[in-house]
Write a protein that binds this DNA or RNA. Structure first.
Lengths: 350, 350
DNA sequence: GTAAACTTTGCAAACGTTTGCATAAAAATT
DNA sequence: AATTTTTATGCAAACGTTTGCAAAGTTTAC
């Protein structure tokens, strides 16, 4: 019993055709007659033929595969982006290899190398918090393989970038708090090695300045935006008077943690302190009081990423496209955590 | 300027060695002297050599890649599973291709074929809600490629299965409601084509029976467990008297929706109706009142999946392992939505 | 000093495709 | 009827590795 899996050679022999004809027939090459195509396809089905993508990729240098590297696929924003990218790519016949760096630089390097080794035709990346050396991507630039950075993007690396308007996000979030009456606003950001947080910080500063509020170094904090770190910062911030009257947390996990801390500590939100988060994680809508957050339109971003990759893959003179920046607008979603109205019966969103 | 990327042939020429020696040197084959290995590796670095996984995979029939198919990577449970699988596989030098079927049977078939075409060395699958024909997996069985189903698993397809104890989950959730005083418990499940829901339903029925509560057909509902469908069911259930005093929702999105509906409609949870969800989605802990849910230990499951794949890959006589079932225990996590105590000051979990 | 054993390297085929070029056959043009 | 054009097919090399086998070189054993 021949357990060996069938190849186009088997089809060719069975039909007394050459392998080249079979190959072309299966790929719907225009030079092959309809009759032959039918015969070949029928025989392929009969023999249970399965194409070997490795062989095809090796020979043609086209793997029909895209690589995606994100910090963590279980976080809301990257998860949403990944979902949509995958679906869009599937529509155009590309496979996606999703990888997560776990915010480890070493893992990112390893993954990028592995993806190159797999000869992906394009790469989309949101870097770790600590990636400042981008030389592991050089090979992609050298070989002219489409390379798109999104969300967390390099600061000084000439490449295609698609990112949210983090400056505006920071600005609007802060100004919103000011509009609602805050005068003493804490900023909690991730490490400044990461593009996102420098931008959001700039926006924060600009809003303060516009409204003639002094920037105080003691009111800004930087650390990985985990629950544990957020709690520590809460201890510092609320451990001594005067309490701030507003907190701008640059991710939603942090915003949620602060809200819970305040609830526990008997600090009323939004009456005593108002909170704004970032990313519009579904949890912000569910918690009580619901949390104002900055929506980054992940689906728009994902669509743009796929579009950019496809453009670059099809481009004849690719170099031209490579160094542009696309900025996706953001939108502040106002909820109860920053409300200035009298508290009224809470209403769930329809 | 030679832009062509370097191969082991280039290294061999440079060093006046044969390609076979170079290949073996790079793979740390024991027959190669340490001295040669060093020379080869140094030269590889110098030339900027990058291995071609397609070529290696083609020749050796070992792609060092695993495929994963889940319904949707942005949902809590599959996202968590994917994250851990990816990390575990990375540790042992395997790549992972994550795919989502979007609960479409056609897409599942297409993805499975693509993964076979990519010659993955193993496949882990959680099926769509509607997969009842599993013939697209036959090729993996025929070719003896490790195949592991998890969570949503086939009912009549002889294969390795790792799943949560959904029967017990259904039983404990229901019994818990009964213990808390419920006598009229609504069950909301997904389509019965999916293994999960038949099991959970059996558990529900068993708990009713044990406590001598009659099973009423009018109190069970089946539909895709989306927010929209949950709202419709709410209309039916709460649109007429008598209201049930308990609801067992077999996923957390549904549980959350019901809670919000009740809040809106002025039905007090848990006083008038108690709610239990399924999966222990982080949102259940955050919402007020927090929702009792069944934890499925996704990390344990993910670890078992990877372990099973690795065992199967290394197995000499693979057939033996193939048809076993592993059942991961579940745990009911009690929260406020099913509490029978007097309402007291709400306390956030530490 | 010769045989046996071991270590290290090389030869060449193989993996399953794709593709440039040549060619045969058929159709269209003169 | 001869020539050109078009259509359909085949030949053979190539993609970059891995690997069974042979062989050369070195060490060990008697």
């Amino acid at each position: 019993m021949s357990n060996r899996s069938k190849t186009i050679v088997d089809i060719a022999e069975e039909l007394k055709l050459s392998v080249s004809t079979v190959s072309r027939a299966l790929n719907d090459h225009p030079n092959i007659s309809v009759k032959t195509k039918d015969r070949v396809k029928k025989m392929a089905r009969k023999l249970g033929y399965r194409p070997n993508a490795l062989a095809a990729g090796l020979r043609s240098n086209k793997s029909r595969t895209i690589g995606l590297v994100v910090p963590k696929i279980s976080m809301f924003f990257p998860a949403t982006i990944s979902t949509i990218i995958q679906n869009k790519l599937h529509e155009v016949g590309y496979n996606l290899i999703i990888c997560q760096s776990n915010d480890s630089y070493e893992q990112e390097v390893a993954l990028v190398n592995a993806l190159y080794s797999a000869r992906v035709e394009g790469l989309a990346v949101s870097t770790t918090l600590y990636t400042t050396d981008f030389s592991h991507f050089d090979i992609f630039k050298q070989q002219n393989i489409p390379l798109v950075f999104f969300d967390r993007v390099p600061k000084d690396y000439n490449v295609k970038v698609i990112r949210g308007n983090d400056y505006m996000g920071g600005f609007e979030a802060t100004e919103h708090l000011i509009d609602k009456g805050c005068k003493d606003i804490v900023f909690i950001g991730g490490p400044l090695t990461c593009s996102l947080y420098t931008e959001r910080l700039s926006g924060y500063k600009a809003a303060l300045q516009k409204h003639k509020i002094a920037f105080k170094k003691s009111r800004v904090f930087f650390h990985e935006l985990t629950r544990e770190n957020a709690l520590q910062t809460c201890e510092k911030v609320f451990g001594q008077e005067p309490h701030p009257d507003g907190v701008f947390a640059t991710n939603d996990t942090t915003a949620i943690t602060i809200l819970q801390y305040c609830r526990e500590a008997g600090i009323k939100v939004p009456e005593q302190v108002k909170i704004v988060g970032y990313s519009n994680d579904p949890r912000t809508e569910i918690i009580t009081p619901s949390i104002t957050s900055v929506d980054q339109y992940p689906s728009t971003m994902a669509e743009r990423i796929v579009a950019a990759l496809m453009e670059l893959i099809q481009a004849k003179h690719p170099a031209a496209y490579r160094h542009s920046q696309e900025i996706i607008p953001i939108q502040l979603v106002e909820r109860d955590s920053s409300s200035s109205e009298q508290k009224k019966t809470r209403s769930t969103k329809k």
